[in-house]
Simulated scan of single mutants.
Amino acid sequence: MTGDQGMKITLRRGVAIAVYGLLAVAGQAFAADPSGEDLPIGDFGPWKQVFTEDFLLDAALGEFVAKYDDKWKARGANWDFDQRNPGQVPVADTSHRGIYSPANTLSVSGGVLDIAPHKGDGPQFGPDGRLEQNEWPELVDLPWEQERPYVAALTPRVLGPDGEMTYGRYMIRLKVEYPEDNPAGGEGYKIANLLWPKSDLWPDDGEIDYPEGDFSDNSFSAFHHYTCDATKPSLDESSECDKFRSQQLPWQDGFYNIANFSSWHTATIEWMPDRINFLLDGELAETRETNPTDATTTTRVPNKPMYHVMQIETELNNDYIPVESRPHIKVAWVSIWKYEP
């Protein structure tokens, strides 16, 4: 790996050493991490550390929001305790099948966050399958109408309540534990650890996803969704963004099959003005294909504020999710730097 491609983290005797090109900076010492790799501490090169989370405070199921609210924003916090209360409105995930419920999915023990998506017991939406303001009536009468999965989405409060920044470096150390060590035990669930535009304008202001993948595949990938110009007409008078939405123009870089979920890995997004690097365990990631590709991209890099979302949700299809599908996503730590060249 050359110096302009990314940064390598080396850990020796509990001390983090950051290497960016020829620059090395020693961080502070800390206890050995249960994942086998310690939380990196310190500024280096163009990166100023603005957020760290080592999950040192234990939190039983249902306690995460109360104990971690100063550092994390959890979606669906008002839909935790009485899911049959008609006065409450659930917050649905991207596929519109799962509901965000931190009290039913998040716990912390032994320095590790455990995110446990699963189906709840009994009806979750009543006989009409109601979701947010009845937006998705197509959910009614499907086989899993009264077996909605609980899922989770967390945003670190970086530099403010919503954590948005323009350019940054985002590290997460994680693995997935499957029932009976069988990836089929993760069927129906996925991760999208992503940077999403503060404007909510998509695809105009881009999107960055890593790691992303279905747990049943036991493999994750990286994606950079290009920014576009909604005012720029294409050949048939439609806007450039319309072409991106319909995928009639190239609209993303994808780097597939980078690593398995079932082992501890450190995934890093380096978002700079002219480049996005995706790193695996301190090195520039490569696709595991016949002709491996370096996971770096320079096309239409986002330049507007984005915020980080650690999103565990249902897969983007209508397949039935077995009740016995219960993966546990283990997160050892999260570390974030702001880009300040």
Rank of each mutant, 00 (worst) to 15 (best):
A332Q: 04
L280F: 10
A259N: 08
A230F: 13
K8P: 02
F55I: 00
R13W: 11
Q311S: 11
P137S: 13
L142D: 12
G45S: 07
S239A: 10
Q146A: 11
D70N: 13
F55G: 03
P305C: 08
T2E: 13
D4R: 14
V323G: 14
V176D: 12
F125E: 03
A32N: 14
R326L: 05
N260E: 15
I99M: 04
D274H: 14
R12H: 14
P156Y: 07
V89R: 00
K73H: 14
Y178I: 09
I321T: 10
N193I: 09
T296H: 08
V50C: 07
T10D: 15
G120F: 01
P305L: 05
H265M: 01
G186W: 03
D253T: 13
T298D: 10
A31F: 09
L142R: 15
E53M: 07
W337F: 08
P102Q: 03
E315T: 12
D38T: 09
R84Y: 02
G122F: 01
H265Y: 03
S95R: 10
G27K: 06
D114N: 12
D162M: 10
N78E: 08
W144H: 10
G160V: 11
P341W: 02
A332R: 08
C228W: 05
Y167V: 02
D181F: 09
L56Y: 11
N291T: 15
Y320H: 07
F64N: 01
V140F: 08
T155F: 00
N134D: 15
L159I: 05
D217N: 12
P203L: 04
P322M: 04
D200G: 02
V151R: 01
M306I: 07
P102D: 06
N260I: 03
S95E: 13
P86V: 06
A60C: 04
M272S: 11
D274Y: 05
P123C: 04
P86Y: 00
L131V: 01
A74L: 02
A222Q: 01
E283M: 11
G6M: 06
D93M: 07
R300A: 12
F51S: 05
N303Y: 08
P197A: 08
